[in-house]
């Protein structure tokens, strides 16, 4: 099988307020897989994703990226590492008052000298590349529209285009469809699937709906109280597993 792109060893996160969000988490993530992380709100899914690109500092354990320890990277080395990992968010996190193109271009900031980016001088190649990214997500006719004038699903696609500017080896998706309606959810998930299949980008995605998990994931892990409680094939999550992950009173909700 393919290689492990990320190896987590005994990863720990304890917040200053005492919340123990991740407990001795050990997990291998294979290059090119579509990994979905499930679990209740507060189970540590978001913390896990943000530890992977070090938006949140782990309290213990280690993260290996392509065999290299990235747990303690600092400054330009950390930024160099983050450039290889794209990220999209539940609330899209676009710069709302700026154009779609401006938002997509901001994904390339890590590759530009600071002064050049602040003067707004994005090289011609980057602009063309931004247009290609927009084409991939089906928005090439909207580069000059203000980001907040788009619908939720379109905004999430702009966010995907922004992350494509990094030519990422891994794409982290934190609840990417939780603010969207069912039809739009599938559209966004299909773009992620396409990026996964066409560019071989590893996807690590937090999701709530099991129907989406079964449809898109190549592998599933479940977190409960910061611990890994399930790891395997999405179709192996039966009634019993569901109740173990989500609690006895949980009822599965379908999204079509």
């Amino acid at each position: 099988m393919s290689q492990n792109i990320l190896q987590l060893r005994d990863l720990e996160k304890i917040y200053p307020n005492g919340t123990h969000a991740l407990k001795k988490l050990t997990l291998d993530i294979r290059e090119g897989e579509f990994l979905v992380v499930i679990g209740l709100s507060g189970s540590g899914k978001s913390t896990l994703l943000r530890c992977l690109n070090r938006l949140i500092e782990p309290s213990g354990g280690s993260i290996l990226f392509a065999g290299r320890d990235v747990t303690f990277l600092k400054g330009s080395e950390l930024r160099e590492y983050r450039r290889q990992i794209g990220m999209i968010f539940q609330q899209f996190n676009l710069i709302r008052r700026r154009s779609v193109l401006y938002n997509v271009l901001s994904g390339a900031l890590g590759t530009m000298p600071v002064w050049q980016s602040i003067l707004g001088r994005f090289p011609e190649e980057l602009q063309q590349e931004a247009m290609r990214s927009l084409e991939i997500v089906g928005l090439k006719d909207k580069p000059l529209i203000r980001a907040d004038a788009l619908s939720g699903g379109q905004q999430q696609r702009v966010a995907i285009a922004r992350s494509l500017m990094q030519k990422p080896r891994i794409l982290l998706a934190d609840e990417p469809v939780a603010s969207l309606d069912p039809a739009t959810s599938h559209s966004v998930m299909q773009y992620l699937e396409r990026i996964n299949k066409e560019f071989g980008t590893t996807i690590i995605c937090n999701l709530h709906f099991l129907s989406l998990v079964r449809r898109y994931a190549t592998r599933v892990v479940a977190l409960k109280g910061g611990e890994l409680v399930f790891e395997g094939n999405p179709h192996d999550i039966d009634e019993a597993w569901f109740k173990r992950i989500y609690g006895e009173d949980a009822i599965e909700v379908q999204i079509d």
Partner: peptide, 27 residues
């Protein structure tokens, strides 16, 4: 300000000054 865009720009590997300029200033 909404901290979301700051997080997004930081995640692209941008430097702190770029985060302020691109995620804070427009807001």
């Amino acid at each position: 300000i909404d901290p979301g865009p700051m997080e997004a720009i930081e995640a692209t590997g941008a430097s702190p000054l770029q985060v302020v300029w691109f995620a804070v200033v427009p807001q």
